[in-house]
Design a protein around this nucleic acid. Structure first.
Length: 645
DNA sequence: GAGGTATCAGCCGC
DNA sequence: CGCGGCTGATACCT
């Protein structure tokens, strides 16, 4: 066995951990996209109106798969702040009627997905069957945007105990039925647009992009039509390893997987597993020597979330039957990772070891370049050359010399905790009626300005101070091959997660020295930034005309920050024309002062050790309107503009 | 209190 | 149509 296994066992060798993948999310260039229009729910488009396909390519083939045959459905308006569920039909009233009615099991019929007849996924029939990277990224972005929005609306409702909502399932089924999906053609082996190391936070994400179609079951398979006599035989395409079924340690390239079925369930005894469906499919994959995609699920302590890593192709090498804990027969399959694939899960297990300090990270120069300023140490690493650190600067987490007095504003009066949806709360009102973050601190949508609660707010566990709480990820400053120092994370990052603010010294632009303008360590909100769409599409699940909100930054005044002498980790983030991070203006008040800042959030899910990059924009040049940056770009993106800054 | 376990609605595919 | 499945969030334990 060449390379990969050997390097794993030989701990003396320098581990060449590469980014799990290069993220290249793609968005339509702004100048092509017509302005977003809320189409009328019915009927012909007004003359001159072009339907907007937020993420599609220039091709707008009508979606023939679109299922418009269902009756005009009940539509749940997206913007409802408090709508208690309708009381149960109350047919059989018996003695215990005093009990909380919501606890009752309400016989539900499947809520039909809002069918906006004018909605088109913008994904052609062909693209739906076979995707590519661009499409995969856009489907994931659209799904998560909707999921965040549904989650926000859910948070805003009166908390009703006993009812558990699942924004992930709702968003997933909406995307499914509206055709926001790709790679529907089942296949063994690689899936177009998927890269080894891709990370997911929901099972539904893997369904939508054709990596693994069942929303729960661990084994996915397709049925091969036999050579004539009606013979059919299942063959496995992919499995999801939950990590629950003890699959012991050791070699990350080997996986022992338990077959499906036989589990004890509510009022059901556990039983022997049968050699059918998924179990049979894995058996057939073994005899046919057919590769199986493996997704490793694991509980990530740093995020208290379940995470899935696409770990590439494995071969089924052995199968056997074992007595499970319940004493019943269980199928076991031993899968071994095909050689020559980029490390993914193996890197992950390696990072877990670094966190424990054994073995220590190779190439580590400093365990914490912030000297304790950040609550989590930021390591400094060079695995490339002999340079032992960036030029000296002062580490600070704030924007200094920046004072903007204003009339004292109302403090937050919520007392307990700001209740999402409570329009009497100033925090909520300033944010346009919506709480900007979902419960786990993920930014719901881009907007002109995110208003956070004052540091003086005493609400216990206030959820509206995300950026004030500082860096929560385990970050690393590292030497890149051709772009100086860069920034990346040991932790996987969920789309919408806060990364850091841009700290430094605020500059009065009118007095700015020309030399400062050329500085690599300057953030300037007045530059021209490539617009892109990240928020949910109202038309996807809603036809009641929730208005589209602008995603473009809006600041009361231009903000120019220099991190040359004073700054935080943000000063190390490099430019990319296909970035995985965006910046978002934010503000909060304290002691009669308004604090303005620029905060960075993840565009998409970012696997560990992937370089974090954002769009540096292009300086407006007076006179000549050429949007040509001053620096040559080495981002390596397929869509590289060639220059920036 | 952190971390584990029980509970349960929810969805798609078979 | 009915149900199974290596969900995922929360309530409730230790």
């Amino acid at each position: 066995m060449e390379g990969s296994f050997g390097s794993y066992t030989d701990k003396t060798r320098v581990l060449d951990i590469k980014p799990l993948r290069t993220l290249k999310p793609v968005f339509p260039s702004g100048n092509q996209a017509p302005p977003f229009v809320c189409a009328p729910p019915f009927g012909p488009f007004p003359p001159g109106f072009t339907p907007f396909y937020p993420f599609s390519s220039s091709q707008h083939t009508p979606d023939l798969n679109q299922n418009n045959t269902s009756e005009p459905s009940l539509v749940t308006p997206l913007r409802t702040f408090r709508s208690p569920p309708p009381p149960p039909p109350d047919t059989a009233t018996n003695g215990d009627a005093v009990e909380l009615t919501v606890k009752r099991k309400i016989p539900r019929k499947r809520t039909p997905i809002a069918q906006n007849p004018n909605f088109s996924s913008g994904i052609t029939v062909a693209e739906k069957e076979n995707g590519d990277r661009k499409l995969v990224m856009s489907v994931l972005t659209r799904f998560d945007a909707l999921r965040r929005r549904l989650s926000q609306l859910e948070d805003a409702k009166e908390s009703v105990t006993g009812i558990i909502k699942r924004p992930d399932l709702k968003a997933g089924s909406t995307c499914m039925s509206r055709g926001v999906r790709t790679n529907t053609k089942k296949r063994t082996g690689p899936v177009p647009g998927l890269e080894i190391g891709d990370v997911f936070f929901f099972r539904f994400e893997m369904c939508l992009i054709g990596l693994h179609s069942p929303s729960m079951a661990g084994i996915d398979y397709l049925v091969l039509k036999g050579g004539g006599e009606g013979e059919e035989e299942p063959i496995a395409t992919s499995i999801v390893s939950s990590g629950y079924y003890d699959n012991d340690e050791g070699n990350p390239d080997v996986l022992v997987y338990t077959g499906q079925g036989g589990n004890a369930d509510k009022d059901k005894q556990s039983s022997d597993q049968k050699l059918e469906r998924g179990n049979l499919a894995l058996e057939k994959s073994l005899v046919r020597n057919s590769p199986v995609r493996v997704i490793r699920g694991l509980k990530e302590a740093s995020q208290s979330a379940k995470i899935y890593i696409y770990d590439g192709l494995y071969d089924v090498k052995e199968s056997w039957v074992e007595k499970g804990k319940s004493g019943h027969n269980t199928f076991k399959y031993k899968l071994v990772r095909a050689p020559g694939q980029a490390p993914a899960f193996a890197s992950w297990t390696e990072i877990q070891k670094w966190k424990k300090g054994l073995p220590s990270r190779e190439g580590m120069i400093l365990t914490d370049l912030t000297s304790g300023v950040e609550s989590i140490g930021v390591s400094l690493v060079n695995e490339v050359d002999g340079e032992n650190g960036p030029a000296y600067f002062t580490y600070s987490t704030t924007v200094t010399s920046f004072k903007l007095t204003q009339q004292p504003s109302y403090g937050c009066e919520c007392g307990g905790a700001c209740k999402p949806g409570n329009l009497n709360c100033h925090c909520i009102r300033k944010n346009g009626g919506d709480f900007p973050y979902s419960g786990n601190g993920v930014l719901v949508g881009r907007k002109g300005m995110v208003h956070e609660c004052s540091p003086a707010c005493l609400c216990p566990g206030c959820k509206n101070k995300v950026t004030q709480m500082g860096v929560k990820l385990k970050l690393e400053v590292f030497k890149t091959v051709n772009r100086g120092w860069g920034l990346r994370s040991w932790d996987p990052i969920r789309a919408g997660s806060f990364i850091c603010i841009y700290a430094g010294e605020a500059i009065d632009k009118s007095q700015m020295q020309p030399t400062v303008a050329n500085d690599d360590y300057t953030f300037d909100t007045t530059r021209v930034y490539t617009p892109f769409k990240w928020n949910y599409e109202p038309g996807l699940a809603d036809e009641d005309g929730t208005e589209e909100m602008s995603e473009e930054p809006e600041l009361p005044l231009p903000l120019v920050i220099s991190a040359k002498n004073v700054g935080n980790v943000a000063r190390f983030m490099n430019h990319s024309c296909s970035p995985n991070v965006f910046w978002q203006p934010g503000s909060y008040e304290n002691n009669g002062q308004l604090f303005l800042q620029v905060a960075f959030f993840a565009i998409s899910h970012i696997p560990p050790m992937t370089e974090l990059t954002y769009d540096y924009g292009v300086t407006r040049t007076s006179g000549a309107q050429s949007l040509c940056g001053k620096k040559k770009c080495f981002c390596g993106s397929e869509f590289c503009r060639g220059s920036f800054g």
